[in-house]
Amino acid sequence: MLDACAELVDEVGYEGLTTTLLAERAGVAIGSVYQFFPDKRAIVQALTLRNMEAYLERLASSWADGSSTDWWDGVDAAIDEYIAMHRSVPGFRTLHFGDVVDVHLLDEERDNNAVIAGRVAQVLVEQFGVAETQRLRFALEIAVEAADALIKLAFRRDLDGDDTVLGEAKALIREYLHRHVDA
């Protein structure tokens, strides 16, 4: 059902998504949809959580290969994976990490980008020994917001992502974080 949801979101958008369309695409009875999900928001939330886990798994894999030697390499990989998911994961370009549906889809207390920034901070601390500080968390929240906005712009300008905008986004984030992160 989540795969069908991802396909439909790309085709008709979140507003056009219905549980009836989902049931038809997934080849299940409408009752089966409601057995697992009370409404379309819950379906999209499950898809968003799956995407976030996939994103974090992809990051872990890219960092495990040893090619990331310092914290910036880790941040660079995080941006690259986000771009790659926009290009290759059904539904991701439309939903991102759920902000289209609800900015608190991943966590009732924090907005979606703050959740992502927190997870990236956790990995930078564990993987690269970056000092865990309020300054780090704040800087990553700003960086995630900026990167998210610029990546969305790149994909509005070009369906595959405008490489010039993506390059500028990475340069901007690199410069900002170099000034604000203690490594």
Rank of each mutant, 00 (worst) to 15 (best):
M1Q: 06
A6H: 08
V9N: 05
V9M: 12
D10K: 07
V12K: 08
G13E: 04
G16A: 02
L17D: 02
L17G: 08
T18K: 05
T18M: 08
T19M: 15
T20N: 14
L22T: 07
R25W: 03
A26T: 06
V28Q: 07
A29N: 15
I30A: 10
I30K: 15
G31D: 14
V33S: 08
L47T: 11
L49N: 10
R50S: 14
N51V: 04
M52E: 10
M52F: 14
E53Y: 05
A54F: 12
Y55M: 12
E57F: 12
S62A: 15
A64E: 13
A64Q: 13
G66E: 02
G66M: 04
S67R: 15
W71M: 07
W72R: 05
D76Q: 13
I79P: 02
I79E: 10
I79C: 06
A84Q: 10
M85Y: 09
H86A: 03
H86I: 01
L95T: 13
H96Y: 12
G98W: 10
G98D: 07
D102Y: 06
D107V: 08
E109A: 06
E109I: 02
R110V: 01
G118L: 11
G118R: 09
V123S: 12
Q127S: 14
Q127K: 15
Q127D: 11
F128S: 10
V130I: 09
E132I: 04
R135N: 02
L136W: 07
R137G: 01
R137K: 13
R137A: 04
F138P: 01
L140V: 05
I142F: 14
V144L: 01
E145G: 09
A147R: 08
A147C: 07
D148K: 06
A154C: 00
R157N: 12
D158M: 00
D160E: 13
D160V: 08
D162M: 01
D163G: 02
L166E: 07
G167L: 11
A171E: 12
E175M: 04
L177T: 05
R179Y: 01
V181Y: 05
V181W: 08
D182E: 15
A183G: 10
